[in-house]
Design a binder for these strands. Structure first.
Lengths: 360, 360
DNA sequence: ATGGATTTGTACGTATGTATC
DNA sequence: TGATACATACGTACAAATCCA
């Protein structure tokens, strides 16, 4: 420990302990020289560094004063930013989530730094690197193609070990010690499909995006429901796709299934966005919704209430998830531990599901 | 200019000019002393500051070397961020605009730093201050309550004079030398109302939000159309409101107008968001759309196609505006001048407008 | 308002410590 | 191991800004 470091430490202590209050005039250099028994060089070096670190400020001829260090401490360059990395930025359910985050953090003086991955690992890598370079106070992440092996685990590990608090939304990686907020996708989808069984459906087609964990979990829920009806299991049918696939082919495949005489009486879709498109596919092969085919979505997208027929779906608590994420990240910035949150959300029955008559 | 500043400047020059390349070993302190004819103190002071600024790095006993300054220069903290300050963040047309901006800038390595004002001047002040403190490369601004005197002009002036490029979207202040991208609200609204006249409407109610310039301009366009039909001018009627007003009162006022026997045959609304609410008001007094009352909106909101009856409106080129704004701010960062862009957008006729029969 | 005292800023010379080559 | 090169430290001198009688 050098002399100037020693002096510096003692003076920082006097400031942080409150012995010198913000705005107080500090002793002059010559007084400090005597006080610490060192030369002017040593005092000047110590005080110079304290000035750089915004603990004090100096006025030539005037003296040295304690700076507003409590505010300036974190303000090297304003870092009251929460980074958000999502697969999409301004489509579908994401505006509501981001809005929720903003509502939770903006009144505490934080802003949001947004970056989206377009569900692509290369872009996710760029986004994460950019976030790590930016002087952010916290990080809210939605994993990209979360069901596939992630080539960016090295960055996630880096985040995990860094002092920047982070949390996942919508999905999470089990092997990372990062808290998460997400839906109980599996159980919610199970409930959706169970209701279809209760309304007499036996042959149900599932269409799921399987490169993210939500999709995989929802498909599991679909399977779970069938597992309770082993007598119909041979009627279950699933179409799986990935976000990079050409959707036209998926719709073609779906249409082909519907043209069969013994076509499914219901289609369970990965999410509402897909469901709305599938509705067009159903109509394109001359079938009526819900008379011939019932449709179920997931997420309760804004439009789902307005399409005809209005879409039966499960609520994604978008705004609430955003607010919870914002609050959680703030508490983590304050040094608290965060426990995961899992929503068991509500189902909204609308007009896209019909009851199958027994005598049919 | 002090000696150490002088020495510092000359050495920075040798580095930026390429005389010393990144990684090169610099002369020793004693050589520099002779070279510049100054004491060791002066050399050490100069080189110490250059080290802090990441131009060079030192190794005790080893020597001084040129740092990777080209990368580190801009990376004091990563500043590849575009600040966006809008009245709303994730509602209505804003996701599309932000999406457009993101599409334009993300492939150049930029991220978006978002902050919204909730259409409140105090929050606008906070947002602008936060942006000025954050190390951003450019700023995209939507004025808050742009038709009212703005208490934050001081900050806008500061932005105008700073080296950070800025531009306005949706509206602009004439007395600031800041480029803008917006709609020709007045002329577009004029065309909307003109079409109502062409379809036989004579008594048209306008409902406009008048604390932002878009609303004021749209109202002017409404007036312009009536000015061409002086014979009906006594039938024109306008309800004005501000964003802080209690909308329930505005709807009550609107309902009151509709209850009159000689009620207007059409309502022209500030935007689609309002129009969709007004549609409920119309129905609540027992009138049918469009048979009894036609409705016209503005902005072509996502939902406008799906409400029943679907809403006649004018296109707000949201995504295009975002992309243009992104491209413009990037070209300004490159040092180019930017010329304002004004869109003369298209009108979409849907089912919320009826033709008035002549014999009526 | 003015000049002298005080206080910080710049600058030089010297001596010694410590890491590198 | 010795020479080299940066780091720490002290003393001194004068300049420039501020303060106060």
């Amino acid at each position: 420990m050098t002399k100037y470091e020693n002096v510096k430490k003692k003076i920082v202590n006097s400031i942080t302990s409150g012995h010198y209050q913000s705005g107080d005039k500090l002793p002059t250099e010559s007084v400090l020289m005597k006080q610490y028994g060192v030369s002017r060089y040593t005092i000047r070096r110590a005080m110079g560094e304290l000035e750089n670190e915004h603990y004090i400020y100096k006025i030539q001829g005037g003296g040295m004063y304690v700076d507003d260090w409590q505010a300036n401490r974190q303000k090297t360059v304003n870092n009251k930013m929460i980074g958000i990395v999502t697969t999409h930025l301004a489509d579908y359910i994401f505006p509501s989530i981001i809005n929720g985050i903003d509502r939770a953090i903006s009144n505490k003086g934080y802003s949001v730094l947004l970056s989206n991955t377009h569900n692509d690992h290369a872009q996710e890598r760029q986004s994460l690197q950019r976030m790590l370079e930016s002087n952010i106070a916290g990080l809210i992440l939605e994993p990209t193609q979360s069901a596939l092996p992630n080539p960016n685990v090295d960055l996630y590990r880096q985040i995990e070990q860094s002092k920047v608090p982070a949390l996942f939304i919508n999905a999470h990686y089990d092997d990372l010690q990062i808290p998460y907020i997400q839906l109980n996708d599996r159980h919610i989808e199970y409930q959706l499909v169970k209701r279809l069984f209760e309304r007499g459906h036996k042959s149900i087609l599932g269409v799921f995006q399987v490169d993210d964990l939500q999709g995989v979990e929802r498909m599991r829920g679909f399977m779970d429901a069938y597992a309770q009806h082993p007598e119909f299991s041979y009627l279950s049918d699933v179409i799986m796709y990935q976000s990079v696939d050409d959707m036209a082919k998926i719709f073609k495949k779906t249409a082909h299934r519907l043209k069969d005489d013994s076509h499914p009486t219901a289609i369970v879709c990965y999410n509402d966005q897909l469901a709305i498109q599938i509705m067009d596919v159903v109509r394109s092969v001359g079938l009526k919704i819900p008379e011939d085919v019932s449709i179920v979505g997931f997420d309760d997208y804004l439009l789902s209430k307005y399409v005809t027929p209005s879409l039966t779906t499960a609520v994604h608590p978008k705004n609430r998830m955003g607010m919870d994420a914002g609050r959680m990240i703030l508490s983590m910035i304050d040094g608290q531990k965060a426990a995961p949150i899992v929503y068991d959300a509500e189902i909204i029955e609308r007009d896209s599901v019909a009851t199958i008559k027994k005598n049919k």
